[in-house]
Structures are given as structure tokens and as C-alpha cells.
Design a protein around this nucleic acid. Structure first.
Lengths: 135, 135
DNA sequence: TTGCGTGCAAAGGTTTTGCATGGCA
DNA sequence: TGCCATGCAAAACCTTTGCACGCAA
């Protein structure tokens, strides 16, 4: 049973309008406050959690200690599996999507019995720009 | 410049003796306290951070909100690249190491300019046992 | 009317920091 | 002696929870 409240609508509207994709609880609260539609942060946490369960929002855990990122599912990765890769050095977040990664998923499931969830998995490493700087 | 202190030696000794590999700050403090060699937890955090920088210890960020895991590097993955995979359902942690994953690394670097760090990367998903339970 | 949703504040857990003291080189 | 390391407590940070009140159905 899912009530339709004003707060829920506001949160969804913001997620939908947020084109860059990755939004934190703080972003949501801050934006709504600025628009004079304040919503309690506990409510934002609780609503986002529900939306994740419903599958209309995706939660990314990018870093330990940093706030979690949320994305309106319909806004993103419509073109197949998409992974996130984060650079340890500059902190930039990349989206990677290609056939090899699809195969990775198949391989893991067939040979290791593990079904990877691209929405939760983040690759860590270094991007080319940062490697150039070091050399 | 790196001083050689009693505390540092104690921490390294425990990491070295810890065969299962993944150890939290709390594990370290608890063990040392039991052995009557108490070390302040701030010290443990600071020393482990240094060891990570030096490359002799690996830090795994398994879950948001849960404590980070540390591993004495010499104790592990002697047999090539090893990735971690964590089951969302049962929470079990698996070690995965095979040729396909080596290739994944090469592919990411060649085609996406991203050099993945297996020591920091954790795959999330569901293991076969948990999937069987659901079906 | 029923009971889920909200908001505030407090609590929870992990990690970081300030500052005076201790100990390596 | 100089300076890094330590230890304690407090702070910082994100997230969860308790509880009274509000509001959708």
C-alpha cells in the first residue's frame, strides 16, 4: 500500500528534472528548501528507500563515508547494461557500457554462479588523464 | 619518514597472523586489548591508513555504513588478480579469480582508458544459493 | 476512521580531528 | 633535541529510529 503524498511527488519531480543523474539526499533537501517546499530529511531517506524497493529509483553507493547517490531509473542507461567507474585520483565518475561487460555478467553467472548487479557495482581505479599526470 | 613504534609492530603482527584476511579496525583493537597490548583506535586508523599508502595493506570497502576491511597484502592474492564479489542477500563474500577477469582489466584499459584496481573493486549481486531460494 | 506518512530530534555507527603527552631517531 | 606518533575525547558525517502528529484513502 503506497500513499500518494505531496512530499513524495516533490521528490519524484526533482529526481525527474535532475538530468545529471546522481543526486544525494542533501541535494534533494537543499533544492526543495530553496523552492520553499521543505521536506524533512528523514522523509527523503524513507521515500527514496521505498522507491528503490519499487524499482523506480536506483541507489549507487559510490564511496564509503560519502552520501549515497540516487537516480530516477527512467532517466538513465536505457541502452543496456551500464557500469560505473570511479577514478581514485580525481574522483570523476564514468559510465561504461559495452558488449564486453555484458559478457562479463554472463561469465560470472555461468562459471562462478554469481549474478552481478550493475546498478550496485562500482569499478575503482584510475582514469587515463590521471595516469598521464603521474608519468 | 616512518617511525618504527611498538603500536605499529603490534598492528602488523596481527594483520600478518590473521589468515582469513579481512579485518576491521574493531577486530584489531579488540584483539590487542585482549592480549593486554591496547592500542588507541585513532592510532589504528592512522597507522592502517599509512600502510595503505605504503602499499603493504589493502583496504576493502565492502559496504556503506559497515566498517572497512583491511588485509595484509602479502597474505593474499598471490595467484594473480583477485576480485571480491558480495552477495546482497546473504552478505557472503566471494573471491573470484580467472582469466576472463584479467581480460576485463585489459579491455577497460584499452577501450575505455580506465585501469581498474581489483583491490578496491567489489562486485555486488546475488549468489547461486540465494537465487535458488527465491525460485 | 484507520493506519501509513511526516517531521523533529535524538541515537547509531564509523571515521576524523584537536591537543597535550610520549617516544623514536 | 626535533618531530612524528599516540591516546583520549570530542566532533563530524551519514543514516536510522522513536514518537507524536498529520493526512491520504
Amino acid at each position: 500500500m503506497q500513499y500518494k503524498t505531496k512530499q513524495r511527488e516533490l521528490i519524484i519531480e526533482f529526481l525527474r528534472s535532475s538530468t545529471d543523474g546522481h543526486v544525494t539526499v542533501n541535494d534533494v533537501c537543499g533544492f526543495l528548501r530553496d523552492e520553499n517546499h521543505s521536506v524533512g530529511q528523514a522523509t527523503v531517506y524513507r521515500q527514496l528507500e521505498k522507491m528503490v524497493d519499487e524499482g523506480i529509483v536506483t541507489k549507487y553507493i559510490i564511496d564509503q563515508g560519502s552520501p549515497a547517490c540516487f537516480e530516477y531509473a527512467a532517466n538513465s542507461h536505457v541502452h543496456g547494461t551500464c557500469f560505473h567507474a570511479k577514478c581514485d585520483k580525481c574522483g570523476k565518475l564514468f559510465h561504461i557500457s559495452c558488449d564486453e561487460l555484458e559478457q562479463l555478467g554472463e561469465h560470472l553467472e555461468e562459471h562462478h554462479g554469481f549474478r552481478i548487479n550493475p546498478l550496485r557495482t562500482v569499478f575503482y581505479g584510475t582514469c587515463s588523464s590521471c595516469r598521464e599526470l603521474c608519468e
